[in-house]
Amino acid sequence: MATITGPIDVSALKARLERTAAATEQAGIDALLISPGSDLRYLIGAGGESFERLTCLVLPVGGTPVLVVPKLEQPGYAGIPTDELGVQVVTWVDGEDPYALVRAALKGTGRVAVADMMPALHNVRLRDAVGGEQTLAGPVLRELRMRKDAAEIAALRKAGAAIDRVHARMGEFLRAGRTEAEVAKDIAAAIVEEGHTVADFVIVGSGPNGASPHHRDSGRVIEPGEVVVIDIGGPVAEGYNSDSTRTYVLGEPKHADVWDTYAVLQAAQQAAVDAVKPGVTCEEIDNVARTVIADAGFGEYFVHRTGHGIGLDVHEEPYIVSGNALPLEAGMAFSVEPGIYLPGRWGARIEDIVVATETGVESFNNRPHELVVL
Rank of each mutant, 00 (worst) to 15 (best):
G309Y: 08
L121A: 14
D97M: 09
L59I: 12
D295I: 03
G225W: 12
D149C: 10
D164Y: 03
E194L: 07
R127Y: 12
P327S: 05
V288E: 10
E370N: 08
D116K: 12
S242D: 03
V354G: 04
G233E: 08
V166E: 01
V258H: 05
P224M: 10
R345P: 10
L265Y: 05
V58F: 01
W259Q: 12
A78V: 01
G234E: 05
A268T: 04
A271H: 06
L328V: 01
A267L: 03
E73L: 13
W259S: 14
D116I: 06
G347S: 06
A275C: 05
A296W: 02
H369F: 14
A155C: 09
V354Y: 03
D116V: 08
R165W: 01
S363P: 08
A199G: 07
Y77W: 13
S322H: 14
R169I: 00
D274E: 13
G62M: 05
L40I: 07
T179L: 02
I320S: 03
G225M: 12
I4V: 12
E96D: 15
G108A: 06
E84Y: 03
P343L: 05
I187A: 04
G95V: 04
Y319S: 07
R142Q: 12
R145W: 02
I163F: 08
I34Q: 11
W346G: 01
A268D: 07
L371D: 07
G37Q: 09
L54G: 00
A129V: 00
E358T: 14
A155G: 11
S244H: 09
A190C: 06
E133T: 15
A129I: 01
F201H: 15
I232V: 13
I191H: 07
V68Q: 00
A120Y: 08
L57M: 11
H215E: 05
A105D: 02
N287S: 14
E370K: 12
R165K: 10
S38I: 06
I8S: 02
I353W: 09
T82I: 05
N241T: 11
V276K: 08
A348R: 01
A199V: 13
H255S: 10
R103S: 13
I232P: 06
R41H: 07
I232Q: 11
D149S: 12
W92C: 01
P368G: 12
V93D: 05
G297M: 10
D9C: 07
G195Y: 01
G37A: 08
D243H: 15
L326Q: 07
